[in-house]
Structure formats: C-alpha cells, structure tokens
C-alpha cells in the first residue's frame, strides 16, 4: 500500500507533513498552466450563451414595453409561436408545412453539393498527390481555379444552367471543391516516403496502394475537409436561395425580410445553426468509426 494522506501520518512523519499541507503556498500558476475542472469548463462555456440570451431578453423587453407592436426584437414567446406555426400549420396556398419543406429542400441541395465536391475532391486529390504525371497535368490548374471567387461564378451558372436546382448544387460544389482538392493532394504528398517504399516492397502496385494505403490514411483529413467546407457551403446555399428559389431556408429568410419578420428570421437562423452543429457532430462520430487509429483514446 502506498502511503497517502492519513497513511503518511501513521508512518510517523505525520506532523511534519500535516504542517506542510497546511502551510502549502496558495498556488499561483502561470495562466497557461492553470487548468479548468470539468464543472468549471461547463460553467465558462455556458457563460457567453447566457450573456447573449440575457442581453437580448433585456433589450427586447425594454422595446416591447415602449411599443408592444415593435417588430425588431420579438419576445421569445412571439418567436416560438411563429416558429411553431411554420412547423405545424400547413401553408394556406401550397398546403406544405413550411419549415420542413424548407429544411428538406435546403439539406438536399447542401448534401448533394458537398457530396459531389467530396467525391470529386477525393478522386482528384489522390490522383494529383500520388501520381506525378497527373500532378504535373492538373496541379497548376487546380491552384488557379482555387482563387476564383465562387460567388462571381453564380451569374454564369444561372445563365448556363438555368435557375433550377442544378445551378444551386453546382455553385456549392464548385465553391468548396477546389480547396478540398488541394488539401487532399497535400495530405497525400505528406505521406512518409518510407511507407510508400515499404508498401512497394510488399508487392503493392499503384492501384492497390491507393486502396490499402492512401485512402485509409487520407480519410480523417477528408472528413475534416468536409467539416470545414460546410461553412462556405451554407454561405453559397443561402446566397443561391436568396437570389433564385421558391423554397429553402435561405429563401424564407430573405422573403420575410421584406416584412421585418424578425420573429421568423431569428428562429430560422437558430435552426440553421442547430443543423450545422448536428452535421458537424455526426461527421466527428463518423471519423471515429471509420478511422479509430487516428483518434487515440482521450484521457477522461
């Protein structure tokens, strides 16, 4: 048994240790060394949310007290009832439940765009990173395409592809793919040459090395790429929906802006945030499932 606390006292050095424990100087660690307990971290993490919520409630209450029909800072009750109506009461004209129809339309566009971009980026990135001839052929082109602002291409896409779904999905895909291609290609080029040499001495050819060495090693980075790409993807989605659409989360926000309907806009923004956070969390889970080796067990 190791002596600990009272154990030490029994061993006969008790008073000394007890005195030292009492007189232990109040630890004044450097800021970078002062760690945070779990509860403390939870509290600190909640604070900014609480601060924003309280500030909003306070401002909203003040404005509504002056003018009960004020539209700029609706009360939580007003926002909830507006949101609840959109989610449960069918639209008079189309008969749709607007929130769900908007969410479905937007998510289909988002996932179709990001999905196509991911697939394309994976194929191109691995080819550019692994095969010197393809690298010489496509890397300069990919580097140049990367710096074209995608929103500047939006009019071209609308002219060339019409105002339908294709243009919106293409915008998202074109918007996020080039950065992903470069990132994946870089990751492949960073693979230790030792591993590639070793795979060859074990009889791997270019294709089987892609399957058994490159793809598994690139997968964690690919998922990180998708997580980072989802931010810009939402941006392009809402921009495209704001300009030409008849349903979708971005379309709705820009539609009700004309009526200053903050009671719809604010819950919609919160809803989009929730969707984005959930997607991100699911991608992290996916990465843990696909590539357990890249996520060593965290010490809890």
């Amino acid at each position: 048994m190791l002596a600990r606390g009272t154990g030490i006292m029994q061993a006969g050095v008790g008073p000394e240790v007890a005195r030292l424990q009492l007189s232990r100087p109040k630890a004044r660690l450097r800021l970078i060394n002062a760690t945070v307990s779990r509860g403390g971290a939870l509290l600190l993490g909640t604070l900014p949310f609480a601060a924003v919520a309280i500030a909003y409630l306070f401002a909203s209450a003040q404005r509504l007290a002056v003018n009960p029909s004020d539209k700029l800072l609706p009360s939580p009750a007003q926002m909830w009832s507006a949101f609840f109506d959109l989610a449960t009461v069918p639209d008079k004209r189309s008969g749709d439940l607007i929130l769900w129809a908007d969410t479905y339309a937007s998510l289909v566009r988002l996932f179709a765009g990001v999905g196509m971009a991911t697939l394309g980026a994976l194929c191109l990135g691995v080819a550019i990173g692994f095969i010197p001839r393809v690298r010489a052929f496509l890397l300069p082109f990919a580097t140049v395409v990367c710096v074209i602002p995608p929103l500047a291409l939006l009019p071209i896409l609308f002219i060339a592809l019409g105002l339908g779904e294709t243009a919106k999905i293409t915008l998202i895909a074109i918007g996020v793919a080039p950065v992903m291609v470069r990132d994946i290609a870089n990751r492949v080029m960073e693979l230790p040459p030792e591993l590639i040499a070793k795979a060859q001495t074990l009889g791997g050819n270019s294709w089987t090395m892609v399957l058994r060495l490159v793809l598994p090693q690139v997968m964690p980075r690919l998922i990180t790429c998708v997580r980072l790409a989802l931010g810009p993807a939402w941006l392009f989605l809402i921009a495209a929906e704001a300009i030409a659409s008849t349903e979708g989360l971005g379309y709705r926000i820009f539609l009700v802006r004309r009526y200053l309907s903050m009671d719809v806009i604010l819950p919609y923004v919160a809803w989009i945030t929730l969707l984005a956070v959930t997607t991100d969390w699911l991608l992290v889970r996916l990465s843990h499932i696909i590539s357990p080796w890249a996520h060593p067990v965290q010490n809890r």
Binding site: P192, E194, L195, K198, Q200, T201, Q217, W293, A294
Partner: peptide, 20 residues
C-alpha cells in the same frame, strides 16, 4: 529502379502502417 518484393526494408521510423 523502384522498390520490389525482391528487397525488403525496415526503416528506423514509419516502418509499419499506422492505420492497421
């Protein structure tokens, strides 16, 4: 002029595949 199964290699580092 490329690595083949005729010659095996053990390096000091990166000598096994970390994803397996």
């Amino acid at each position: 002029p490329e690595p083949t199964p005729q010659r095996g290699i053990v390096f000091q580092r990166y000598s096994v595949f970390p994803h397996l």
